[in-house]
Design a binder for these strands. Structure first.
Lengths: 206, 206
DNA sequence: AGATTTTCTTGACAATTGTCCAAGAAAGTC
DNA sequence: GACTTTCTTGGACAATTGTCAAGAAAATCT
């Protein structure tokens, strides 16, 4: 009976949206390997279960596919540091957890992060990317701000930096670490942790 | 006589290198407008005084041209903040001059800066770019460090951050400002100045 | 001035790219 | 089962791209 129920349930699923998500997941994978400049629709299709014509059935054009990928990326990253905020018992603990989380995601999701930076930078050249990219950047800023403001709460001190400044500082540290790490520098992740652990307390107003 | 001397002098010039530099200057201009992904050799040639075949005469392939452009970029940016260090009389003065210089170059050279970030990010995907890009990044780090360490000297206090951390922090601020500025946000440059002026003192050990 | 060398132009080539679309298969509906 | 709708495939198309070779033009040498 469970199998029959599953069949009925599956039939009700919005298959169109599901296929789009499937294609976008494939696209993200290919993009994160090849980068925006070298990823063609045929490459994307080749690394999926479908032919290249399917991409045109489900997406109006390449821009729409890329932007759908950007939104999918956003959905995946939006909860990255929630656990840290939820479990933090002290400012010091949060600081260590945050720096560790940044190092971990830099290590484990490095290819996806470099794609994000690639697409963010493309938005400087492509007007059609800009709105969606800025929206994600805003989300990332809120994520970092949640960390930073919680840190301030736990320390019982106000924060000296604006949300955008705080985000820019940690983003800079992260991006440098990513470049170094992907270039094979052994201490990149340790330097990231150290840099984050030194920077966070500097944001407090004494 | 001056004209005759000029003629002889010009005949001695290494015309090959001069032509390469000319082509690379054109290439930088096109790249900074279109970005790496959308710049073809024909686009570069079209925006120069030569035909597209000349690019293959003077450069082995596209990668060599791009890397030559990267080196040209380095030569141009290497002195950007020297004046600040040379003329600073106090820590506060240097801080203000530095933040102003960042805002100014963000405003005036924004298209070239976005190209730098584009190429730096491409190095995450293209092994062939990496060595040269890392070299420039190192140069930029030294440039920022010269500012930061001079600031420490003038303040009579040591600096709490490593050169790479300091660079990452200001690079993060700059890059965010660039994105915002090029997206039409009116306060981006003011926010950059403010962010820099708040961050620099934070690097001092009290 | 003629011969030789260097520089430059042009078009060809093969491969790639985004887009479009017709044919047929698969799924859904009556 | 017949009919309709949706989905998939893969080829066509025009444009683009990096590369290369032939030949023209310019510069240099004798």
């Amino acid at each position: 009976m469970t199998e029959l129920t599953d069949r009925i349930s599956r039939r009700q699923v919005d298959k169109f949206a599901e296929r789009r998500a499937q294609l976008a997941t494939s696209a993200l994978r290919t993009l994160s390997e090849l980068g925006y400049a070298r990823t063609s629709l045929r490459e994307i299709a080749q690394n999926s279960a479908f032919s290249h014509g399917v991409l045109h059935y489900y997406f109006r054009d390449k821009v729409e596919l890329i932007m759908y990928c950007v939104k999918l990326y956003k959905a995946e990253c939006v909860t990255r540091y929630d656990q840290i905020v939820a479990t933090a018992q002290s400012a010091d603990q949060l600081c260590v957890d945050f720096s560790q989380a940044l190092a971990t995601t830099c290590d484990e999701d490095g290819t996806m992060h470099r794609l994000w930076y690639d697409l963010r930078n493309q938005a400087l050249f492509e007007e059609s990317f800009r709105e969606d990219v800025l929206e994600i950047d805003k989300t990332l800023e809120l994520m970092i701000w949640r960390i930073v403001s919680t840190y301030g709460d736990l320390a019982g001190q106000p924060i000296a930096a604006s949300p955008s400044t705080a985000y820019a500082l940690f983003d800079g540290l992260f991006q440098q670490a990513l470049l170094r790490h992907l270039s094979g520098e052994p201490k990149a992740l340790d330097n990231l942790r150290e840099g984050v652990e030194k920077t966070l307390p500097k944001l407090l107003i004494p």
